[in-house]
């Protein structure tokens, strides 16, 4: 597995939903070695403002063609600059960085909220033909355009919305106990808001199902050098989200008692 700095060429770049962009980059070296859960650290321009790279989850990979795809929300100046890049432009990418998901599963359940679904998309595709079940949550049905993205890459999709405008009304963790009733899953992967991941991990623990979660944080270096993104491990030792994570076993970093 080799990490590199590559000039990815913009192949495709379009909106999936308001303020949500899907960016496909030609970056063969990164595509070859990327695993689900890893991220790329992206420069959004050549100038000093903004200065730092942006850590973005890899959402899809086409190893044969040599492409990686990122799905991101336009949240600030950096992502707005990135969003303006047309096909043919180059994007400076460091990656793939971080540790990915453990793939030892036969019957996986993926639980995601918001942009946390991006790395789970890569995971769902990589797990094929093992049938993944996906549970996704959002505030309203407008946020769940993700459903279309996951169609065809998983066995079944369960949806919750805070307002009940699509699927079950409530949070993912309200529907999760029902999905776990038949003990059908041997692994749960969660990515999204911390409270969601905490709730999912507790339910997984109660059922004795190993659970992995993926963190996000503000990062400068992306390689474990600057210590901007560290968190406390439950064993008292510190963890770096960028290089020890972003994927962790839930009990490694979350208090599940």
């Amino acid at each position: 597995m080799s990490k590199t700095v590559a000039q990815g060429i913009v192949i495709e770049h379009f909106s999936l939903a308001p303020m949500i962009k899907r960016l496909t980059l030609g970056a063969p070296a990164i595509a070859r070695s990327a695993r689900p859960g890893q991220f790329v650290h992206v420069r959004v321009g050549d100038s000093y403002h903004p200065l730092l790279r942006r850590p973005l989850s890899i959402a899809e990979v086409d190893r044969e063609v040599g492409n990686i795809t990122i799905i991101y929300r336009v949240v600030g100046q950096g992502t707005a600059l990135l969003a303006s890049l047309p096909p043919g432009e180059f994007v400076d990418c460091m990656g793939p960085l971080g540790n990915g998901f453990d793939m030892e599963t036969e019957r996986p359940l993926l639980v995601g909220g918001g942009m946390g679904l991006a790395p789970l998309l890569f995971l769902a595709k990589a797990l094929c033909p093992k049938p993944a079940t996906v549970l996704m949550g959002g505030r309203t049905k407008q946020e769940l355009w993700w459903r279309n993205v996951f169609l065809g890459v998983c066995r079944s999709i369960h949806v919750t919305t805070d307002d009940g405008s699509l699927g079950r009304k409530g949070f993912t963790i309200d529907l999760l106990p029902e999905l776990l009733e038949n003990c059908e899953y041997d692994r749960i992967y969660a990515c999204g808001p911390l409270r969601m991941m905490q709730g999912v991990a507790k339910l997984a623990k109660a059922q004795g199902i190993p659970c992995q979660i993926s963190f996000e944080d503000h990062m400068a270096c992306g390689v474990g050098a600057c210590l901007s993104c560290t968190c406390a491990g439950t064993d008292g030792k510190r963890r770096k989200v960028c290089s020890d994570g972003p994927v962790f076993w839930a009990e490694e970093v979350l208090d599940l008692s």
């Binding site: 000093y48 200065l51 730092l52 503000h218 400068a220 600057c226 901007s228 993104c229 510190r238």
Partner: peptide, 25 residues
């Protein structure tokens, strides 16, 4: 040292702020 709690970096025009707080083993 565990370093400081909360957010540790912020981007500023042509620069950045950090408050790691000497986290080290």
């Amino acid at each position: 040292r565990d370093g400081n709690k909360g957010r540790r970096i912020a981007e500023t025009p042509a620069g950045m702020l950090n408050c790691i707080g000497l986290e080290n083993p």
